[in-house]
Measured scan of single mutants.
Amino acid sequence: TFELKGKVGKVVKIAEDHYLVEVEGDKWIAYSDEKLSLGDRVMVVDVDGLKLKAKRIP
């Protein structure tokens, strides 16, 4: 999973306390310091076990 750092994905679902992000065809649980919206493009900035930390990108 460490190779996911720096990869770009898309928010495909918003849950109460996390997001579901699709990166290279796989879906991952993600969290972010900022509020994300459905369809936002994100970059993986860190990997915490099986969770990704994501940041919105333009």
Rank of each mutant, 00 (worst) to 15 (best):
38 L>G: 04
54 A>D: 00
38 L>H: 07
53 K>F: 12
37 S>Q: 12
16 E>A: 12
14 I>D: 08
41 R>N: 13
29 I>K: 09
54 A>G: 04
11 V>T: 05
34 E>I: 04
6 G>M: 02
56 R>W: 07
21 V>D: 00
7 K>M: 05
21 V>A: 04
29 I>L: 13
6 G>R: 01
42 V>W: 01
49 G>T: 04
25 G>E: 06
43 M>C: 14
3 E>A: 03
7 K>V: 03
18 H>Q: 11
16 E>R: 13
54 A>K: 01
12 V>G: 02
28 W>Q: 02
48 D>E: 12
54 A>H: 01
45 V>N: 03
51 K>G: 04
40 D>N: 07
58 P>I: 09
19 Y>T: 05
41 R>I: 11
50 L>T: 09
37 S>E: 12
19 Y>R: 00
17 D>Q: 11
13 K>C: 09
30 A>N: 01
54 A>M: 15
5 K>D: 15
16 E>V: 12
35 K>G: 08
38 L>S: 06
52 L>N: 01
57 I>A: 07
9 G>W: 01
9 G>L: 13
9 G>P: 00
29 I>G: 08
56 R>L: 10
7 K>D: 04
56 R>H: 05
39 G>K: 07
5 K>F: 15
27 K>Y: 08
4 L>P: 15
55 K>W: 03
48 D>Y: 12
5 K>W: 15
26 D>V: 14
37 S>D: 12
3 E>R: 02
13 K>N: 11
32 S>C: 14
20 L>T: 10
35 K>I: 12
17 D>R: 10
1 T>S: 15
34 E>Y: 05
56 R>I: 05
6 G>A: 02
4 L>G: 14
48 D>C: 15
35 K>Q: 11
12 V>K: 06
33 D>N: 08
14 I>W: 09
26 D>P: 05
30 A>Y: 01
24 E>Q: 06
11 V>M: 02
19 Y>C: 06
29 I>Q: 14
31 Y>V: 12
17 D>A: 10
30 A>C: 05
38 L>Q: 08
31 Y>L: 14
39 G>T: 07
30 A>D: 00
47 V>S: 07
48 D>M: 12
39 G>W: 14
56 R>D: 01
11 V>K: 00
58 P>Y: 13
47 V>E: 04
35 K>F: 10
15 A>L: 13
32 S>D: 02
36 L>K: 00
18 H>Y: 12
56 R>P: 06
44 V>I: 15
